[in-house]
Nucleic acid binder design. Structure first.
Lengths: 106, 106
DNA sequence: TATATTTGCAACCGATTGGTTTCTTAAACA
DNA sequence: TGTTTAAGAAACCAATCGGTTGCAAATATA
């Protein structure tokens, strides 16, 4: 099964998990408390997130703390870069149009 | 069927289509020429992209030109913002560690 | 007008998805 | 030691996905 980060963030529950553990590591049980779903389903989501290296585990006794591999998120940012250039240019163009209208009003 | 942009960009073919039409509008036939798939399957992808308003159509005779709604891409960027703050902070911390090591070497 | 071209839509298919239930393993604790 | 708790793995299920084939509608062209 080929997993990538785009597939990982496609699911809304997974996006919520990512946000949840972005700032502090959490156990599967603690994560599951935040959703209307079973612990096992959260466990499955964590497996997918682990498979595409978006998440890292730290065992502590019988508990496992999951935290976000924040650097991995940059891959999405990197992909967005190609479009960022375009939408900034488009914004510049809109800016020009607006200032032209302003000038005409004078 | 609830569609959102994250589901739209989960598929690699759709991401390629998005990149392809980011700079210039194209017809479904022209788009399909770039992939090892049927025109109908590209048509399906375009329908999904249209449903979540990532793409706009412009009819020209019997041809339909599809182009990217670049502004919509900002939604992904917006979602990334919460993490950007974190990874920039982490980078600052790494920066501090590195400069500390530098000082110790002196 | 008859024919060719461009496109979307519906029906179908195998694979995958997200979820549940059940079971097992391992650690903590009485 | 026996019990409780935390977690992953396996088996199953309905729904969805991405793809194909076949067809219909609309426009262009001879």
């Amino acid at each position: 099964m080929r997993r990538d980060i785009f597939q990982a963030i496609a699911d809304p529950t997974r996006r919520a998990i990512i946000t949840l553990i972005a700032l502090q590591a959490m156990t599967p049980n603690a994560i599951a408390d935040n959703f209307n779903t079973t612990r096992q389903s959260v466990s499955k989501h964590l497996r997918i997130l682990t498979e595409c290296e978006l998440v890292k585990q730290e065992q502590q006794g019988r508990e496992i703390y999951y935290s976000l591999e924040i650097q991995k998120m940059k891959e999405v940012d990197k992909w967005l870069n190609q479009f960022r250039k375009i939408w900034e240019t488009r914004f510049d163009q809109l800016d020009k149009v607006l200032s032209t209208i302003k000038k005409q009003k004078k």
